[in-house]
Design a protein around this nucleic acid. Structure first.
Lengths: 182, 182
DNA sequence: ATAACCATGTAAATGGTTACATGATTAG
DNA sequence: CTAATCATGTAACCATTTACATGGTTAT
């Protein structure tokens, strides 16, 4: 799904500015399966207006930058609901971390160990943030997606914690590198 | 990581044609975190040759199409190993399936139920294929990545199987749609 | 015969990232 | 006074996808 569709989805939940949509894409459940920068959000919003799927209202309030609030139109809502009926495309994951892990035996053992630790730490941080989300305010689908993310991250963190050390040990054995003192 | 780097990584494991690299990207552990089509692989391979990171040899055998076998050069190997030392960029996942699940309450319950079933089936199929991989022939890093994928897919499939039905039930309650007879 | 697989590529179009450009307000 | 946050946008660049173009071999 492109940024345009994602913005339409965001607007289907209520009016928002480009800035707010960006934040929505970063935090909460949305952030786990999607991301976009201003360079794609603002043009996407403009295009939705051109196509009649959204409208803009400029809000000028004293002591605040001028904001542009976007609203979905009935046509936009219809288009979005039609999209939801279509067969979703396959997931597309690009993970540099997994890429380097694949080539773990071409990496210095100490670096490998650090990468594994960083990854687990990253998962733990994300998990804490996710579990801290106010579950009350979420809709069914949002909570479902959030908890799916939690289940997946937990499984990944646990796997790396359990299996990582033996990967590092094998790497040290292969290269004859003693454990680095910290 | 771009297709060029991924091709370099593939060649670091041995000579290959563009066609073979495509297959590597589709099946086995590699397929879980990366994908690329011919339209990006062939130009990437050509560029690696231009940059002196790989060389080509044209193989003509009777009763077979002409093939071009690419080999990594020492410079290519050095460049690849240097890349492995760098901080990997954040994962980038684009999942239309999760996107529609996020908006589950805007979807007809029967369709939601089908999407959940399709997803679990897809995970189960992949898991069978992954567990069927000959573990003996894999290197440490490859096996690690493969098993990480198994752990993650299992957790996801299990979560959807356990939590999906209540999501569907809530959706039916909300819309007053009775269960469809099959 | 017909589909699937082997095998290589190009060109146009799409879509997204990054860098640039600007400027006000608020919290430390 | 400085950094962070609020707020919007454009333009150049980059990478990738998709469609096109070709043609032999193998299995059903």
């Amino acid at each position: 799904m492109d940024v345009r569709t994602a913005c339409l989805g965001a607007l289907s939940r209520g009016d928002a500015t480009g800035y707010e949509i960006k934040k929505l894409f970063e935090e909460g459940p949305f952030g786990h399966f999607f991301s976009a920068g201003y360079g794609s959000i603002y043009p996407a919003l403009a295009r939705l207006c051109e196509e009649g799927l959204a409208t803009v209202a400029t809000i000028e309030e004293p002591g605040r930058p001028v904001r542009k609030s976007y609203s979905i139109t009935p046509a936009g809502r219809a288009a979005f609901e039609k999209m939801l009926l279509e067969q979703p495309a396959d997931d597309r994951l690009k993970s540099e971390w997994i890429f380097v892990a694949y080539f773990a035996d071409s990496m210095p053992p100490d670096l490998l160990e650090r990468r594994l630790r960083e990854r687990v730490d990253w998962y733990r941080e994300r998990l804490e943030a996710m579990e801290g989300c106010n579950q009350e305010t979420l809709r069914d689908g949002e909570r479902f997606v959030l908890d799916l993310g939690v289940a997946v991250y937990r499984a990944a963190a646990r796997y790396i914690e359990e299996q990582g050390p033996s990967l590092v040990a094998a790497s040290r054995r292969r290269t004859g590198t003693p454990e680095a003192a910290e």
